[in-house]
Amino acid sequence: MLPLVLVNIVVILIPSVSSVIYSFTDWSGIGNATFIGFDNYTTMFGDADFRNALWHNILWTIFFLIVPMAMGLFGAYALTRVRRFRLLFRVAYFIPYIVASVVSASIWRSLLSPDTGVGKILGVNFLGDRNLALGSVAFVNNWAWWGFLVVVFLASMQSINPNLYEAAAMDGAGPTRQFFSITMPSIRPTFAFLGLMTIIWSFLSFDYVYILTQGGPAGSTDVLSTLLYRNAFGTLQAGYASAMGVVMALISGIVVAVYLWIRKTRNWEI
């Protein structure tokens, strides 16, 4: 407990508090700052770039709540039902998660490129078309992510008492029924926790956008974190960037609060 508190104070709490302070100033990131009250916050809500990025985060969240979750649950459940090669499948799925984001971005940049790989075959410029770019980046991020969910869900599913399934099978329940009546309720804590983390991480996602598109083309892949980064270091508006950071923290604060409230009213353990 104590070492955690200690390191947390230094690495997270102090910088967070100073960010909150900076969010009320016009600090450029260079030199002195003057206090300007809530100006940054009022600016933000009129800022089309901010709304654009926030919207992309929402889309991103929806994507990650559906696609990798479905793939992870399907993969894990299917693996509980196969006998041969389970280990092999599990390992294979997990491997992309191990690949560093800088490397997987490199892999997919060439695969999606309109000069080589899939982009050429389909005649599509995935990262250059502003209608496709966000989806393409999310796709690449998902590639590296869903296998992790398979492994975690599988671990959780394997701890379910097999007798439950046997009993259900005797009652004539097929695999689909068993999944919804036994598997899902049993892994609910894991599921809820990963759902929560998915939402939170979706609002933080940075690496793939930063490496693949830097928010472009024309802002079509901008998310809050890349916009924050650009404001802090590109346009010299560190005060404004801090205010964005605070808003992001508030958003995840609300998400956590809702989660905890649900957990309390339904009596779940995390």
């Binding site: 490129s113 309109p114 000069d115 410029n125 990262l127 250059g128 078309d129 083309p217």
Partner: peptide, 12 residues
């Protein structure tokens, strides 16, 4: 094209 302009890297 505008799309390829966005994805062309200098070596290319």
């Amino acid at each position: 094209g505008v799309d390829t302009y966005f994805t062309n890297q200098f070596p290319k």
